[in-house]
Design a protein around this nucleic acid. Structure first.
Lengths: 148, 148
DNA sequence: AGTTATAATGTTTGTGATTATCAAACAAAG
DNA sequence: CTTTGTTTGATAATCACAAACATTATAACT
């Protein structure tokens, strides 16, 4: 964990930004909740526990900054809130999501799965793919068994 | 075009809704701008040209209704606005998009391309896929050639 | 046609997430 | 220490969208 903070610090500095205490706390919260897709509000509340003086705007600014630096991915599952997801270290691509239409649970898929599709897109549509977002909507295993 | 309006009318009636003049104008605007990923505001302005008395809320309601009936797909490219996209007739799935990071152009892909991926997801993750959203971010052909 | 029930509309007001503003705190450099 | 630029926190503003509600249209009866 310390390593990852260190790495993020370096990324910030490379882009002429500092890892201020506020930013560090925010990053820590993101690391500690890596699998939850937190909204800005969620992050704000969790950060506030550790650093009560922080302002909402600072959290928004930090999330925006980390997104620009591709440390975070800003996602939108269609419920009027942006959610933030740490990009895996070294991951070229955004990972995929399975959103359950019943219970709202969000599962992540680390596998790429899209290599072939991207090749087709590059060739047939002459489009240079830099990143992708793939979300499946459906019914998760849990909710499927409940229905029986 | 008249056919498609007729088909949409039937879909509405099947769900106990009427094709009111306001709804018809809204549908026409959507058909006339089928390739354009309009926001609710965009639709409202275009509808207003043809039917100045219409209220914003009616347009929102109509877009919502058509989305529920799967005539429209509501999409989100990450700029804080929802955009609306007519579903091709008979299409089970949402079509994909190529968003150019340079010029912002949005191209559509009709091909499914995800059949294999969905099979993997259903098997390995025990997730029943109902729909999907896939967007590629990258550089379109136009912008690629400009760079040379 | 007249009456009533229901659906749909338009105006206006609310709401909730995000952004902008701006003065104050802080940090770095001379 | 002084100056300059960065970052912060409080607050107000914005913006997309939803809710409320009175009004109007439509359909189904009589």
């Amino acid at each position: 964990m310390e390593n990852r903070i260190q790495r993020i610090k370096e990324a910030l500095q490379e882009a002429q930004y500092k890892l201020t205490p506020q930013r560090e706390v925010t990053v820590k919260v993101l690391l500690e909740n890596e699998r939850d897709h937190l909204s800005a509000e969620d992050v704000f509340l969790k950060v506030k526990d550790k650093y009560p003086e922080i302002g909402l705007a600072t959290v928004y600014r930090t999330l925006e900054l980390l997104s620009e630096l591709k440390i975070l991915d800003k996602i939108n599952f269609g419920d009027g809130v942006s959610r933030y997801d740490l990009r895996k270290e070294g991951a070229k691509h955004f990972h995929h999501h399975l959103v359950c239409m019943e219970c709202g649970a969000v599962e992540e898929i680390e596998e790429d799965l899209l290599e072939d599709v991207e090749k087709i897109v590059e060739k047939e549509y002459n489009f240079k793919v830099m990143d992708h977002r793939l979300t499946f909507h459906g019914i998760c295993g849990n909710c499927q068994s409940k229905k029986d």
